[in-house]
Design a protein around this nucleic acid. Structure first.
Lengths: 148, 148
DNA sequence: ATCGTTGTTGCGACTGAGTTGCAACACGAA
DNA sequence: TTCGTGTTGCAACTCAGTCGCAACAACGAT
C-alpha cells in the first residue's frame, strides 16, 4: 500500500486558495504533477513533467513552489538514502507519517506505517516537551529479495 | 537507557587497521577531529579542523575519507533538517541509534534515545523482512524554550 | 470591465556541496 | 631498500539549489 489515503485531485490547489495564496498556471501544473505522481519525484523530474502541462514553467519556479508547499506543510522532503545523487524527493503529505525503507542493492523503496512510530513521536513530544512539525524516518539496508 | 559509551581515542584508527585499511597522516588528522568533536560537524568544518593538525589535508581527501567511514559503517550522515544550507553533518556511530530533534526556530539539536525506536526497528525487520544497516530519524519542530 | 497593488515569473548569473581524472607520492609487506 | 598498490593534492568539473531583477499577471477594489 504505497499511499495510505487516496488523493482528491485539485486538493492542493483548493487548500492554497483557502489560505489566500495566489494561483498561477505554473503552480497549477506543478501541483497537478505532484498530485498524480505514482512515485517519488525529484525537482528535475517534476520540472520535466510540469513543462508538459505548461511549457513556460521554469526550474526556479519549481524550487520556489516546493519551498512554498514545504512551508505550508503540504509536502514532505525525502533523501531516500541518497541512492541517486544528492538531490531531494518530494511527496504529498497525506494522513499519518510513514517510514521509507530503501534497499541499498536494488534501490527499491518500501513504505511502512506503524503504530509504534506514532507512539515514539508522542514519547518525544512528552518527555522532551518538543512540538513536532515534521518527522522523517529513513532506513537503508537490504530488502527481502536482496539479502543473502 | 542512556549509555555513556565513551569514545576511546584512536579507536577509529585501530578499527581501520584491523580491517587492513591503509593509514596516512591525513586520515589520522580527520579521524582525530571526528573522535574529539563535541558537536555535529559538516565537511568544511571538518576540513578546517583537520588542517590545523595537518595543513596538507585537502577538501577532496575529507570527502573521500567520509565516504570510506560511511561504507565501513563507522559514522552516520545527518541532514539536521537542513537548518544551515544543503550540506551534511557527521558523527561517530556509537552504541545504539539516537534520534535528532532540530528546533526550527533556535536551531538547537537535541538527541534522544528510546526503547520504542529499537522496538520499531525490530518490527520493520520482522514484518518487512528487511535487513536494516542504517536508520536515520530526524525531527523538526519547536523546542521547549521556543514553542509559544 | 478596468485598474492598481502586490505577489509571481523567467532569465541568467551565481553559490556551495560534492566528484573526478591524473600524475606524484607514500604506506607497508617482503 | 624495493615495489606494488592505494592515497593524495590539485584543478577542473557537475549538479542542486538560490537570487536579483525587470516584466508580468492574479485578483480585490473601483
Amino acid at each position: 500500500m504505497p499511499f495510505p489515503e487516496t488523493e482528491i485531485p485539485g486538493r492542493l490547489q483548493a487548500l492554497l486558495a483557502q489560505r489566500g495564496i495566489r494561483m498561477t498556471d505554473q503552480r497549477r501544473a506543478i501541483l497537478s504533477v505532484i498530485e498524480t505522481a505514482n512515485k517519488h519525484l525529484d525537482a528535475s523530474q517534476l520540472l520535466r513533467k510540469a513543462q508538459k502541462l505548461d511549457p513556460s514553467v521554469d526550474r526556479s519556479t519549481v524550487y520556489r513552489t516546493l519551498g512554498l508547499l514545504k512551508r505550508q506543510g503540504m509536502i514532505d522532503e525525502l533523501d531516500l538514502m541518497h541512492l541517486n545523487g544528492e538531490g531531494h524527493y518530494y511527496e504529498r503529505k497525506l494522513g499519518r507519517d510513514h517510514i521509507h525503507m530503501a534497499c541499498l542493492r536494488c534501490g527499491k523503496i518500501t513504505e511502512f506505517v506503524s503504530e509504534r512510530f506514532e507512539s515514539l513521536k508522542s514519547q518525544m513530544e512528552q518527555e522532551c516537551r518538543f512540538h513536532i512539525l515534521v518527522a522523517r524516518l529513513e532506513v537503508g539496508g537490504y530488502c527481502t529479495a536482496c539479502r543473502r
